[in-house]
Design a binder for these strands. Structure first.
Lengths: 174, 174
DNA sequence: CACCGCATGTAACGTGTTACATGATTCA
DNA sequence: TGAATCATGTAACACGTTACATGCGGTG
């Protein structure tokens, strides 16, 4: 839904062509989420099929323009007006992995925790570095990286919390 | 990848049949991620196609058992030994949405922030309530809910951070 | 009897990903 | 000239989701 609605939202600014949409999408997210061009075209094809966008001739340079339809506009407005659903949370691979790890005899959950913590801290550093390298004034990209930083920090906190829980359980068991 | 590896990991405990896997998976995650039975069978079919599991006769009650193969065992061991990749983060719909919102003229980013904050706080409450309702001693389920709580808290903090940034930008602009 | 939980699947679809094919333009 | 970037697509595939079909067994 992110790509689909993202492209749709960008098209609300005015007609664009495929490659332009890819660039715009990446620019807004500070290249945090590079977008394969192919996906832009397949997504546009699906949006066209569903009547949310329509081809709109060519620009002076001969690029195939797309514009958003009335239905598409409504769809975007709905998107803006509704919160991203986090109550029925998407399957979190890490949470599932650890939930299984603590219950399986052959797996050392502490090892899994350790490794994940190292990786997450490294990711945190990567995001921080990327943020510093950001051109000043790019609010959108800066906020995106902040989101990743906040999420990674929370993950580290959670991993430490898990560690503590497992240690307590271990000591309590003897 | 979560479901696939999750089922594989569960099968490492010993042969199981489809419905049993569904129950086990849900039990470990405290029913946080209910698993459609259909998906269990399609996933098992794909795992069988790829040689990671194999049919293993029937149990005394006539259930179609699956067991993990040598290749499958290796795959699971790899999974345990590798951290969940968060450096190339999955597309985060909320982050993308806000990154686009701050740059688009027709959209009030503060409104979007407000609505999202309300929804996230509500989700936080839901998770807390669910955690209280948990039977004592279910470590795995408890940790899963903690993960959601930590993530939601981080999201609220980030939303507030965004608000502050936007307010500053607004005042700085006049 | 009717309903529910257990049990095994199949079919169709949505989103996303990669790889490939093709051609124009620009630039060292 | 050769490489990189711009530009438009197609094909095949992975994962996940929902809905549907079908049958068994127990319980109110």
């Amino acid at each position: 839904m992110s790509v689909k609605h993202g492209l749709l939202a960008l098209l609300c600014e005015g007609p664009r062509y495929g490659y332009e949409l890819k660039s715009a999408f990446e620019a807004r997210t500070g290249t945090t989420w590079p977008l394969n061009v192919g996906q832009v075209y397949t997504t546009l094809a699906r949006l066209e099929r569903d009547g949310l966008v329509a081809r709109d001739g060519e620009d002076p340079e001969g690029h195939a323009l797309y514009r958003v339809t009335a239905t598409g506009t409504r769809e975007v407005e709905d998107w803006w007006s509704q919160a991203v659903e986090r109550e029925a949370p998407p399957r979190d691979e890490l949470a599932i992995k650890l939930a299984l790890a603590v219950g399986l005899p052959g797996v050392d959950a502490r090892d899994v925790l350790q490794r994940q913590r190292t990786a997450t801290v490294r990711a945190l550093q990567t995001h921080t570095r990327k943020k510093k390298a950001l051109p000043a004034g790019d609010t959108a990209a800066s906020l995106v990286l902040d989101a990743l930083v906040f999420a990674a920090e929370a993950e580290v906190r959670w991993l430490d919390h898990c560690e503590a829980r497992l240690s307590r359980a271990r000591n309590g068991a003897r």
